[in-house]
Write a protein that binds this DNA or RNA. Structure first.
Lengths: 229, 229
DNA sequence: TCAAAAGTGTTCACCGTACACCCATGG
DNA sequence: CCATGGGTGTACGGTGAACACTTTTGA
């Protein structure tokens, strides 16, 4: 019988997190060096097991918090991976989540404690198990999200320049964008506030700083749209 | 320790399938009346439990086959649901899949054996547990898929009229489309073959039948595109 | 004064959309 | 001959994409 509650095989359920950050004009991911077998010493996504009486979203947040100290992070469930031998020790099903965090205010000590390190997505080491597959999935989801929702709030510092925002989009999409077209498209979204302040670090002339209009931003997050870039 | 393999709670992992069909100009879903407790007699998605040594995709196919006799069906993983009390009997995590099938050649006896029935998505009964939520998810995924991939091959009979295809899109998107614009957009996809045959049932004049060009169709499935309807 | 990044508009091609009339046939 | 659904084309507006020069200022 297909539906009987008895005599069914329970499984181990893991949660793995792909953590994206943006720094130095590059899209990065946070990886940990495993300090236990199997695959000890290899790079891996941050993961853990789902607890009894815990919801997946909560597990993902807990794991993220455990490694980075972050709380209230944008996370989204990606996909559930179930290949038989994905984990050589024991049959484990893994639900992958991805998170977007602002690299600027991360907890550096905490990250170092866990042998964690930021890698450029273009230059990441080979990961254990099927984590490479998860990463690929996450990148394509992030790209998709870019074309249907505004993005940036989660990955950029409070104040940022247009150029930084453009570089972020370029990093996510892996392609160069035209400055003028980019600005007019972003402006048409109507989620930015231009400040009177300038950032003087990147050029002699200085460039205006912007913030996200949190309310408008969240509103746009609810309704899908299409942004062709 | 977050990563220890020992002392971890294993869970029951279910698979639930949202099965879409298209019939009588309506988008339908296949539901079963539960013949066991809890919620015996209520309508439910088709589900079952993941077996040890079985991949999720396989489990989804197995469940679909068990109820409908279908094989080689288009299926896609949707999302994993993990609310603590979603199943009142025992903590169960459920991975939802959706499938697209051609109603014409379904196995009617098999379906009747399991108290299964087709319902219009607009007129479906209340479902057990969180199955309504799953259904909503599936519909929005199907809509999204419609705008990035060709669709129809899976849901329509071998030969069909333009009007049928249009009705399918209208049913999925819940909005009316302009005949002329629809045809030119579909033609621009370049996946249809116009046959010399006409369907004489729907009108006196008769309307041309089409088939999908399987090769081109599959090719388009690989590369995303955007189809604004 | 010059190097380096910031800022700013216009034109063109294409596509999405709205829209209306004739055609073929069976009854 | 007429009612019913089938089939077809055009015009307009909006948007994505390409493109280059001026401004500011610290060194």
């Amino acid at each position: 019988m297909l539906n009987s509650y008895s005599a069914t095989d329970k499984v181990l359920l893991a949660v793995d997190c792909i953590i994206f950050g943006f720094d130095n004009d590059e899209l990065k991911i946070l990886l940990v060096k495993r300090d236990f077998e199997p695959e000890k010493g290899k790079w891996s996504l941050m993961g853990g097991f789902l607890k009894k009486d815990e919801v997946l979203n909560t597990a993902a947040s807990r794991i993220l918090n455990y490694y980075t100290g972050f709380q209230d992070i944008y996370m989204e469930q990606l996909y559930t991976f179930s290949e038989i031998d994905r984990d050589p020790v024991e049959r484990t099903i893994s639900v992958a989540y991805y998170a977007l965090i602002n690299v600027e205010n991360h907890n550096e000590e905490l990250i170092q404690n866990y042998n964690a390190e930021w890698f450029s997505v273009n230059d990441a080491p080979k990961l254990i198990f099927d984590h490479d597959k998860m990463l690929k999935h996450a990148i394509s989801r992030l790209r998709y999200r870019t074309s249907t929702k505004p993005i940036g709030f989660e990955l950029l510092p409070e104040k940022f320049t247009m150029r930084q925002l453009q570089k972020l989009y370029e990093a996510i999409l892996s392609k160069e964008l035209d400055k003028r077209n980019f600005i007019s498209k972003i402006n048409s979204l109507d989620v930015l506030i231009k400040l009177d302040e300038k950032d003087m670090l990147s050029s002699r002339k200085g460039s205006y700083l912007y913030t996200f209009d949190k309310e408008k931003y969240e509103e746009k997050l609810l309704n899908d749209f299409v942004l062709n870039l």
